[in-house]
């Protein structure tokens, strides 16, 4: 009995310590980058010798950071279009197989979700070879097509989850009252699954903005994407402007996340 209580105390300590280390490891790096972005120094020395907005000024300087601005605009454009087109296709696909118990529906579901687990880096190279064999020159449109394939599963998954929670009695009631299928979809299904679609689109957009494996192969100097540009900056000079970009992106994500949480209960959705 004595030994078991000693063991129990040890258990609580070890679990507590490891959980604390987990939290530190999760949040620490984010805080370190934010602190570094306000440094006065030329280097990434931590803790920063002094605080200033110097590197943010540098980042927003249209002349000196023109390449970063172009890359950021390219990334935003590709993410917006890939999310919009991929989102619509994914919602249709989710509607097509929702509540169907047949094997064909399971096969379609697994295929539509497959880009989430297959290594996208292999896909990136495959896409480059595919477009090159077809003789299509690299452009932002190719990047949109490539991103669309890897981000559509996010919308597909959340929409399918929303549809499975929808009470079919509502649609039946609307049909019994003489509403057409389209009317029923527009007035009942769509409003009820909208939060799921929005949460999926949010994840899809973020994931496109962040995409490396596809952009690595499909983007060129002319169609630079932000993560690839940042990678280039990290490989050559350890420019402190990267920390400032990080600060801007973290703030933007934070705002988007809070807005999405208010609108759709994103944090609830993510924890199941």
């Amino acid at each position: 009995m004595q030994r078991s209580t000693l063991g129990d105390v040890g258990y609580s300590w070890i679990i507590g310590l490891l959980a604390g280390l987990g939290i530190l490891i999760l949040i620490g790096p984010v805080l370190v980058v934010i602190a570094t972005s306000f440094t006065t120094s030329q280097t990434l020395k931590f803790p920063p010798p002094g605080l200033s907005l110097r590197w943010y000024g540098e980042l927003f300087n249209p002349a000196r950071s023109a390449q970063i601005h172009t890359a950021a605009l390219n990334s935003l454009w590709v993410a917006a279009l890939a999310t919009a087109i991929g989102g619509v296709l994914a919602v249709f696909a989710a509607l097509a197989i929702s509540r169907v118990a047949r094997p064909s529906a399971r096969v379609l579901e697994a295929s539509f979700l497959s880009p989430l687990v297959l290594p996208t880096l292999s896909y990136g190279l495959a896409a480059l070879m595919f477009f090159s064999v077809l003789g299509i020159r690299p452009s932002l449109n190719l990047l949109i097509a490539g991103h669309l394939v890897v981000i559509a599963p996010f919308v597909f998954r959340t929409t399918l989850a929303s549809l499975s929670q929808l009470d079919p009695a509502l649609l039946e009631a609307s049909a019994n009252l003489g509403a057409s299928r389209l009317y029923g979809f527009r007035r009942i299904t769509l409003p009820l699954i909208a939060p799921g679609i929005a949460a999926g689109c949010f994840l899809a957009f973020i994931s496109s903005m962040d995409n490396v494996p596809v952009s690595l192969f499909l983007s060129t100097a002319r169609t630079a994407m932000l993560p690839i540009r940042m990678w280039g900056m990290m490989e050559t000079t350890l420019d402190v402007r990267i920390a400032a970009i990080a600060g801007v992106l973290i703030l933007a994500t934070l705002i988007l996340m809070i807005v999405m949480d208010r609108l759709t209960g994103l944090t609830r959705r993510m924890s199941g």
Binding site: P29, V30, V32, V33, T36, L44, F46, M209, D210, V212, P227, M230, W231, M234, L238, I242, A243, I245, A246, L249, I250, T253
Partner: peptide, 12 residues
Amino acid sequence: TSVVIRTFAWIV
């Protein structure tokens, strides 16, 4: 937070 930024954080 972008994977590139998380990688950058670990360099720092």
